[in-house]
Each structure stands twice: as C-alpha cells, then as structure tokens.
Design a protein around this nucleic acid. Structure first.
Lengths: 126, 126
DNA sequence: CCGGATCCAAGACGATACTG
DNA sequence: CAGTATCGTCTTGGATCCGG
C-alpha cells in the first residue's frame, strides 16, 4: 500500500466525491433515502432543520451526479415527486460504511483530543 | 443491515466526520501527510492552490480533532514546525479507502449521469 | 519560516412570500 | 404538494500586508 493513495491528490475523483458527500445536508439526505423512496415533504420532515431551498439544491446536486433518482408523477393537484437512491447511490452508501463505523468508534477520542487542545491553549495563554 | 444506518442521521458523529473530511482542503492535506511528516511550506507546495491562511485553518481544525500532530521546534530564526498524521488520523485514512476506490471506479458513471442530466434539461426547455 | 491581522468577494444557507 | 423568487446573513476562502 501507499502508492494507491496518490489518487487522493489535488485534482482527483476522491476529492470531488468527498467534497460532495461532505456538503451540509448530503449525509442526512442519503441516510433518509436509505430507508426507501420518499416524497419531497417527507424528506423535508426527515431532514430536520433543512429549508425547502437547501433541500432542493441538495437533491438537484445528487440527481445531477446520478446518486439519486427523481420521479415526477404527472398528476395535477397535488403534484407528486418521489426521490430514491440509484444503484450507484446505494453503492456509495456502502463505501461510506467504514467511515461511519470509524466515526462511531472514535467519537470519544475526538472529544478527548479537543479537551486536550483547549487545555494546552489555556496553559500557553496565561 | 439497515438498522445501523440510523447513526448517519441528523446529529451524529458520522455526519460531523463527513463534513470535516469533506472540507475544501482536507482530503489533499491528509493525502500529502500520508507520505510522511511535513513542514508548513512543504505542505503548502504539496497542496497546490491553497493559501497560507486556508492551510493554517485546515491544519488547526485537524489538530483540534486529533487527526494530525503539530510539533514546534523552538529555535529562533527560522522557526520549524512539523505536521504529521496521528494514529487516529492514519486509521481515518484507512476508513476512507473504500470511498477512494468507489470514486475511482465510478468516475465514469458520474460523468455519464451528468451528460444525461444536461440532455434531459435541454429536451424539456425547448 | 510560519503564520497572524485585515479586508474583501463569492457562495451557502435561512426566512419569507408566492405559484402551478 | 413541490417547489421558485427574492432578500439578507453568515461563513469560506483569497489577497495583501505585517510580525516574531
């Protein structure tokens, strides 16, 4: 190992994917859709705190990359739009599993590191 | 499977980690440090396009979370500061491997999805 | 050499009002 | 219901100058 890491460099797919998947509302939206297809308003309720605008932008971006699918059922009053993960999106979620596990396992370590950092800052700024 | 995904929800470690790791310069910095410890200016050269300010902020954030280590060698003119991955940071990089592999494998699929999206947009806006 | 301080531009995001 | 339009704010990051 070691050589393959070059692909994480400046202009590479991994960086784009990480930036996209790390965007404000993306993780929560993906998680919500993992439970199954959802309509816009359902999604808005599931992703608490998001505004319609931010949600729309998030969904458009994910649709643009082929991560989610948007199906509009053309029936007047009321309109119906369903969002769901594509196979591509599903495979992405699987690739994200180790990150999720890492986060769960090390949430304590990070909190501890932050406490240490605070203490050191205080000590130096006496 | 299915139940464990709940941890990717609104207020959870995974989301924080994803947001942090998805920040603008983080992936490239981590990749650079994977090759070994580096001084500030080396890092600045390795991460092309970054400004001193953005790099400093990125490094502080990673140090704060215990992902990287900052060692200041107290010698006047010139100062010397070395950055390196902590064991925690190294384990994070490993967890990121599947994402990197996913990105490499599906970069073509994403490009194709984007082309399809453009075409559909054109077709509708005739 | 390693940044901190300051100013500024662009984009992300929220609040609100409105529409097919 | 599923957005769009508009506005204002807040954050990110670039540019530049300065200091230990």
């Amino acid at each position: 190992m070691g050589a393959a890491h070059d692909l994480l460099a400046a202009r590479c797919p991994s960086r784009d994917v990480l930036n996209r998947v790390g965007a404000r509302w993306v993780p929560t939206v993906l998680n919500a859709l993992d439970a199954g297809p959802m309509r816009f308003t359902e999604l808005k309720k599931a992703v608490e705190g998001v505004t319609a605008k931010a949600l729309t932008e998030t969904l458009r971006a994910l649709e643009y990359d082929g991560i989610i699918d948007r199906v509009e059922t053309p029936s007047v009053t009321p309109p119906r739009v369903d969002y769901s993960l594509t196979p591509l999106g599903r495979s992405l979620l699987e690739a994200l599993n180790p990150v999720r596990e890492w986060a769960e396992r090390h949430v304590g370590d990070i909190a501890e590191a932050r406490r240490r950092y605070e203490l050191n800052s205080q000590a130096e700024a006496h």
